[in-house]
Design a protein around this nucleic acid. Structure first.
Lengths: 339, 339
DNA sequence: GTGAAAGCGCTAACAA
DNA sequence: TTGTTAGCGCTTTCAC
């Protein structure tokens, strides 16, 4: 292990040509003879030379790196997305600078400044708590939003699942199982969650021509799962005291849905016989509950692929960039045992 | 949104001083009067100037970025680790370049070359399938290994959980519940898993003065969880046909452990009465099984913290670097319902 | 086909 | 306290 990276200048010296010739050969640009190419490449290989991408970036104003802003890697939906995106980008020789904002707006702002200073070629913004501060970008870097649209920012691509349709699928499934479904949600209402609620409400109204707001129950976040399940149990008892089985519940995410199944078990309610539960996301956990969770599958693979394609398209052909688009990716109902 | 980042030269011009003075002010280095400082900062704020970190990096040979190599972000242990590390680093103004190698050695090699070319100030390598190819690094960048030691590479820090002790804790717990515990494992044997097995075997031998290799059962990975559970069921049936309840099982990871609980349920074996199961990792899933999983908690928080501290120590005080160390982080038994 | 030279934006001697 | 200047390693005109 030598202690220093060799530079293009030394390669030039060692192979007896000029720096510019070395540059041409290793970048396969301009013209050069096969003979010089071989001379140069031999030295390059011998010394395991790799161009300094910092210098290259400074010179070209193009760093072959993409920033990715994510609210919380602890959430499997996000970490899967990031993994898939990183893979796509790496295949095209882009490196990924990751910024986990912990759902914190100050960190989000700092991340953007940092990415900006690092001259990233593009940024992928994955859903976060609040409106993304794109106005704080002081230069025009290609931007793609996933899962949550930027408010007041129609200049960029947006890619997201069809949350509305997913909710409708779930609700209809519950209705056709002879229930008048309830909706369980957490407190926070991200735009994607709003869409799910809307899909549920509309579908419900369409079927029953009426909708009573207390069909929507809120499960606040608590420090421990135990406390959350206690809250769910009391909600469940409330429902079963006023309505008769079977009851249907559409939960706005899978961990909530599984917690409902577990709470039901605690109070001896049979799922799916007396209680039918459908979640959203198709998180790993959906396959570890008893019964396994029926849920709406988000096509993370496709979302990641489109996001990368569209971003790199903008990066490489800034001229050809069409009017920004809103791309909605289809979802599907995965029937397992819970409904 | 202006279309171009303003440079230090323009700030200098606008505030009527030289670029070196601007540099001194924004970096709070050298000396300058309060008056010039104010003049400069006013312009800096007005134009929302941020130093170009690429140029800075090229000049200083220090990029304030850290590379992190991870085998698979889909694994919650790894994604949690990465999230915590990213947070620590961001607090100290380092950005994180992430490389998900998908457990693929070619990608690992490519990642290292890339990080090398990007002049990262340090690299954190999180456990992967095979020996980390540190000899391919052609310059001496500080390196910290997490969860898997580099073979033939004693020049760097290593931080990992006390897998051996964790396994011993689990095994002893099972023994004190009057079982002669079995061990369930997947095919792959990472070094950390090897330690767990060793801890189990040693503890078993210590108690019973003998050890029979078919106490160790292998559950191969399959395309679907259903198939894996079918295999587990048959293993379980085999055990119950030859031994009487209660049976104890130490599983080398939590998802395997939860699958065992689910398989047991399928064949009407009561957990924890007739079958006691202990996992390893304390993954999120451990709290979603019925009964909840008793498991060994890895202190990811501490691991991340030490890794970052040690790495940044090496980055900032290369002289002061002590002899590399192997740091073992304590683990603990979390008693829930499954054992 | 090849080389010389300018310069990307910044920091860090060194002078003044 | 401040300014001048020389590069960091690379690409890219522009000559030859």
């Amino acid at each position: 292990m030598t202690d220093k990276n060799i530079s293009i200048r030394e390669i030039a010296k060692l192979s007896g040509v000029s720096i510019s010739t070395v540059s041409r050969v290793i970048n396969n640009s301009g013209s050069y003879s096969q003979k010089t190419a071989k001379k140069v490449m031999d030295v390059v290989n011998e010394y395991d030379y790799h161009a300094n991408s910092i210098a290259k970036g400074l010179r070209q104003k193009r760093t072959n790196s993409i920033g990715i802003i994510v609210p919380n890697l602890g959430n499997s939906f996000f970490s899967n997305l990031v993994e898939l995106i990183e893979n796509q980008l790496a295949n095209q020789n882009y490196s990924t600078i990751i910024c986990d904002t912990s759902n914190n707006q100050v960190k989000e702002r700092k991340s953007i400044d940092m990415l900006n200073a690092r001259l990233v070629d593009g940024i992928i913004v994955i859903s976060g708590r609040t409106k993304f501060q794109s106005e704080s970008l002081n230069y025009s870097v290609p931007l793609v939003y996933i899962d949550r649209e930027a408010q007041n920012d129609t200049d960029y691509y947006f890619i997201g699942s069809d949350h509305y349709k997913g909710a409708a699928l779930a609700t209809n499934k519950l209705i056709s199982a002879h229930t008048k479904p309830f909706l369980f949600k957490n407190e926070k209402e991200y735009p994607s969650i709003k869409e799910r609620i809307k899909g549920y409400v509309d579908t419900y109204k369409k079927e029953f021509n009426t909708f009573d707001a207390d069909r929507i129950l809120v499960v606040p976040k608590r420090a421990s799962l135990q406390e959350e399940r206690a809250i769910i149990r009391s909600r469940l008892r409330g429902i079963f005291s006023r309505y008769s089985a079977p009851i249907g519940i559409f939960a706005t995410n899978d961990s909530l849905a599984v917690n409902i199944i577990l709470a039901a078990r605690d109070i001896n309610v049979n799922v799916p016989k007396d209680l039918k539960v459908i979640g959203f996301d198709d998180a790993p956990i959906a396959q570890y509950s008893v019964p396994e969770l029926t849920t709406i599958h988000q096509d993370v693979q496709t979302i990641a692929k489109i996001a990368c394609t569209k971003l790199i398209e903008q990066v490489t052909k800034p001229k050809a960039v069409k009017r920004p688009q809103k791309i909605i990716v289809d979802v599907s109902l995965i029937e397992r045992g819970s409904a």
